[in-house]
């Protein structure tokens, strides 16, 4: 991965707030001057972020500001999009994830991802959970792992009698928890969640939120959400991203970090007026 910006595009000037990074002693994921392009249009500009360990970090911001793009950088799912290019550095446990010695496949086991729409495999519930562990060479007792993963995802009691039924036979909320269980079964260190509740009803949403709270003892969670209440309720830290109006155009949008601080502070005393405007619903 090249670290030189593409020609004709000098390093973007930093806004006053984009430089503000929260200092943390032991970040799991750290980005330094991260820029991402789709083809020739910039999608993320000068992202500097330190994600704390065993905390829930929420990412909020208007549609198209690059929240999903940022998340996909962390487990290198962007590699699958032919047109992406990035500059800057992403450190995971202090190691450059785009360095030559890091392999995307093993990185993705350690940085799991739950998608916006529940996407269980068209296989049995058991197999949905067991598959990831098996292909990663899990040596232990598979039945035990399936049960404990489903328990952690608060789904066990609902499915224990029908493990051999198709994962697609579950309700949307159950499917999403199945996807979480599947991610837990490969024992990641970080779980990326891209709007995991956007297809769920309030009750399922609540159960996923409770689950996240439960999980943060062992995992670091980064969650993208459009739901301010959810960010406020569920997260410890909040990243507020906004569109960079100087670069964004009709057909492509560029996101920057407007503010990054503890959820408490961001929602009560935001330091950037644009953050305040966004969270109170005046822009975005």
């Amino acid at each position: 991965m090249s670290t030189v910006p593409p020609p004709g595009r000098e390093t973007p000037s930093r806004g006053p707030s984009s430089r503000e990074t929260v200092s943390l002693s032991d970040p799991v994921i750290e980005t330094r001057d991260l820029n991402v392009w789709y083809g020739s249009s910039p999608a993320l500009k000068q992202i500097n972020l330190s994600v704390p360990r065993n905390k829930i970090t929420a990412v909020i911001g208007p549609s198209g500001c690059g929240k999903s793009t940022l998340l996909r950088c962390f487990n290198r799912m962007n590699d699958l999009v032919a047109t992406t290019r990035m500059t800057g550095v992403i450190l995971f446990d202090g190691e450059n994830i785009n360095g030559p010695e890091t392999d995307a496949v093993s990185l993705r086991r350690r940085v799991g991802m739950v998608f916006q729409r529940p996407n269980p495999f068209p296989k049995t519930i058991y197999e949905n959970v067991a598959w990831g562990a098996r292909i990663n060479g899990y040596q232990g007792d598979m039945d035990e792992l399936v049960e404990s993963s489903l328990r952690r995802a608060a789904l066990w009691d609902e499915v224990k009698s029908k493990l051999n039924q198709s994962g697609l036979s579950l309700s949307g909320g159950q499917q999403q928890r199945l996807c979480i269980a599947r991610t837990l079964a490969v024992q990641p260190e970080v779980i990326l969640m891209d709007e995991p509740c956007s297809a769920l009803d309030p009750i399922s949403t609540r159960s996923v939120e409770d689950l996240m709270d439960e999980l943060k003892r062992d995992y670091t969670i980064i969650i993208v959400t459009h739901n301010m209440q959810q960010a406020r309720r569920a997260s410890d830290m909040t990243v507020c991203m906004l569109l960079d109006d100087s670069v964004s155009q009709e057909n492509h949008r560029t996101g920057v970090i407007a503010e990054y601080s503890s959820t408490e502070k961001l929602f009560t005393t935001p330091s950037d007026p644009r953050t305040e405007a966004y969270i109170t619903g005046r822009i975005g």
Partner: peptide
């Protein structure tokens, strides 16, 4: 075959071949 299967499999740390063998081809 929906791309979501591929994404889900790759995000679990599967190689491309494992993804194709266990999800794409059966579907």
């Amino acid at each position: 075959v929906p791309t979501t299967y591929r994404q889900a499999a790759l995000a679990l740390g599967a190689t491309r071949w494992q993804t194709v063998r266990d999800h794409v081809l059966p579907a």
